[in-house]
Amino acid sequence: MRVRQHVNPLSHQFAQPLQLPDWQLIYGQVQQPLHLDIGSARGQFLLRMAEQLPNWNFLGLEIREPLVHQANALRINHNLSNLYFLLAQANVHLAGILASFPIQVLQRVTIQFPDPWFKRKQQKRRVVKPDLVAVIADYLQPGGDVFLQSDVLDVALDMYHHFQRHPQFQTQGEFLAENPLGIPTEREQSVLRRGLPVYRFFLRRRAD
């Protein structure tokens, strides 16, 4: 099934509030640390993470509805009780999503290869903005991690600088040569097969 590559995140359809699930019914152990992946696409990355780290919970946010359905079907097929995918626009819905958890368990955030929206007039559609960073800072536990990567240098730097400017985040070095999580996304594999560079940054939430 062909899926639209670009969905306008500013569309009025994403202004509607979400009907959120009961996380205690979704996750077998809701108190486990939570890894949030913003822009989870087909979910292959989180699927592999969830299989390798059963003592973590994983939540993928994606704005392309067919991909969310596919990813959740894959989750069910693999019988994983530590993984879920949600149709959501992170800039609109993230605070409500994280506030709906019975306890605050967010320990890691990944934003990988987001839509670059190259045209200047479209850059307001990019996912990483100051308000999103502020929400992540509010809910990410002290010492929690943020991992960013893109094959577009301007996009990688734009994401990095938004986090770097927030007082609650400290950088962990400059560009990373390798993915510290050890599991590549499908896009990452494609880029590396073509011998192209990937620009990666790692930041940490300061201790309160």
Rank of each mutant, 00 (worst) to 15 (best):
Q70G: 03
Q32T: 12
G39V: 00
F58T: 03
Q29H: 15
R64W: 10
Q19S: 12
L34W: 13
P33F: 13
P21K: 07
G60E: 01
L67V: 06
Q24R: 07
S11L: 10
F58H: 09
I38T: 11
A88F: 01
R42H: 15
N57S: 06
S81M: 06
Q32D: 15
Q19K: 02
Q32N: 15
I76W: 04
A15R: 08
L36A: 08
A15C: 02
Q89G: 02
V30H: 13
F14K: 07
R64G: 07
V92D: 14
P33M: 05
L86V: 01
R42G: 15
L86M: 05
D22K: 01
V68A: 05
L86T: 03
D37N: 12
Q52K: 07
L83N: 05
L53R: 04
A41I: 01
Y84I: 00
G39P: 02
F14L: 07
L87E: 11
G43Y: 04
Q13F: 08
L46T: 09
S81C: 09
D37H: 10
L10P: 04
V30S: 11
L59R: 05
L80Q: 08
N77H: 14
P54T: 05
P33K: 04
I63S: 06
A50M: 05
R42S: 14
P66T: 10
V92I: 07
P54N: 12
N55E: 15
A88T: 00
S11I: 03
N72H: 04
G28A: 14
N82T: 01
P21F: 09
L67T: 00
G43V: 08
A73T: 07
Q52D: 14
Q70V: 06
Q24C: 11
Q89T: 00
S40D: 14
R48H: 15
N79Y: 02
F45M: 11
S11A: 12
Q31P: 02
